[in-house]
Every structure is written in C-alpha cells, then in structure tokens.
Amino acid sequence: MRTLVEFARRPRIPGRRPTRIGLVPALTVAIVLAVAVAGLAGWGDHRAAQRDAAVRQALATAPAAAKAIFSYDYRTFDHSIANGRTFATGAFEKEYAHTTAALRQTATKQQAVVAAEVSSTGVVSATTERVELLVYLNQYRRNVNTAGEKVDQNRVVLTLVPVDGQWRVAEATAI
C-alpha cells in the first residue's frame, strides 16, 4: 500500500502538464451562475409582488362591482343598470346590457327591488392581467308577488381585468 507521500512523489510524464482547473475561471463561472440565480429570484419576487398588487386591487373593486351589477330598483332602473355597466368591460358589458334590457319590463311590472351584498370573497386564480374571484353574494329581493323580503344566497366567479388603470368585470359565472 502506497502512502500519501509516495503518491505525491510519483514521477511526472515529460512534456505533459498536470490537469487542473484554474482558480480564476472557476470562480468566474461560479459568480456568473450566482448572479444569474439571484437575478431570476429577484425577477420572480418582482412578478409575485405585481400579482399580489393585482389581487389587492381586484379584491378592493369586487364588492362594489358585484353590488352594482347584481342590484336594481324598478323605480331607478336605468340608473341602477348604468351604475352596473361602469364596472363591466368587453363581451360581458354587452351581455350585461342585453340581459338587463330583457329584465327591465319584468322588473317594472313586478315592482322588483334587488339589493346585492357581498358576504365574502376569495381568490380562485391570479396573474397581473387577470384575477378570478369567488364571490359569496346575498341578494335581498322584494316585489309585489312576495310577502316581505326574500334572500337568495349565490356564489359567483367574477373575472376582473385592468382597463385604463381600473379593474373591471370581464366575466361573471354563477356556480
């Protein structure tokens, strides 16, 4: 068995240099890799902060939007619907206008008043450009056909998107 000293004294092959990685290139590679990993982590944190800001803004908008979209009063129907439309965008805005136009005659005939209140919200999914929220919504309704006030408990997924710096409802799906 050879000792460490004997191993260190082994003869060199003439014309051949010992192979070893230079310290400077190895450190350079390590530093470049560390900077790249730190940069990626920083970018990930930045995107997460942007997503969190989008969620906060959408959550702040959702109660007022849901209340406006899902409430109406036959006495001020046009005003109620105009208020709801301020929170809608895109295809949903057109769908909302169509649905409420069909509802107008029935609401007036039945003297319907529907007041929506959000009891809770939760995030379904979120990016910086689209936030889906689960909204627990109570609709308090009364009309000439009902005695007193009735409460409908609903769950709705609202999809909000930023439009000109404001979050608007791009889709509403009852579940």
Rank of each mutant, 00 (worst) to 15 (best):
V144Y: 07
H79I: 15
D152R: 14
A68Q: 09
T173R: 15
D52Q: 07
Q50M: 10
V161T: 08
K67T: 10
V29N: 00
V5R: 14
E117I: 01
A66G: 03
M1P: 15
R141M: 15
T76F: 07
I31W: 09
P63Y: 06
A102Q: 15
V123E: 04
L137H: 00
A8Y: 02
S71I: 11
V5N: 10
Y140S: 11
I175N: 13
Q57P: 10
D78N: 12
L4D: 13
N143V: 04
E95K: 14
P63K: 05
F70W: 13
Q153H: 08
G165V: 09
V55I: 07
G15K: 15
W43N: 14
A8I: 01
L137F: 02
I31E: 05
D164R: 04
N143S: 08
A48Y: 06
A101L: 14
H46N: 06
G22C: 01
F87R: 13
V157T: 05
T106R: 15
P18I: 00
N154R: 13
Y74R: 08
A62T: 08
R75P: 07
K67D: 07
G15I: 09
V169F: 04
Q139P: 08
T121D: 02
S120E: 02
R85V: 14
L59M: 12
N145W: 07
N138H: 12
E129S: 11
K109W: 08
G22W: 00
K94R: 10
G165R: 09
V29T: 06
P14M: 00
A126C: 04
G84K: 12
S125G: 02
G39M: 01
V124Y: 05
R16M: 13
A101F: 10
V151Q: 12
T61N: 08
V157Q: 07
V113A: 01
G44K: 09
T89W: 11
A62K: 07
V114M: 09
A48I: 02
